[in-house]
Amino acid sequence: MAQAESRLRVSDRDGVTTVEFVDRNILDEANIQAISEEISALIDRSESPKLLISFSNVDHLSSAALGALITINHRVRDREGQLRLANIDPQIYEVFVITRLNKLFEIHDTADEATASFA
């Protein structure tokens, strides 16, 4: 059976897995579920995963996408890993501020800053 087309671009460098989104809008429930499962599989590949999620291509996200990020954060912590978010558009960052999720996640302006922050 053919695999569903990935909605992510994944790269590994210096022990850090970086994930970028193919889609500009992270809104659709089914799409979010697929993305969440794909990232969960990446987390489960290693002990103490270092995961960087870059939002450089993303224009819109929904509360369902925020929920998926929270679930991903739990999964990373369960495996004693570290999660960083980066390259978030100012309008989307405001969504994190309004929901106070900027307190829950470690967010950096750029992917380079986020990569350098891993312990």
Binding site: S62, S63, L66, G67, I70, T71, H74, T99, L101, L104
Partner: peptide, 10 residues
């Protein structure tokens, strides 16, 4: 804060 749902109406 760490619950994955309940933000839509807000």
């Amino acid at each position: 804060l760490s619950k994955p749902s309940g933000r839509g109406v807000m």
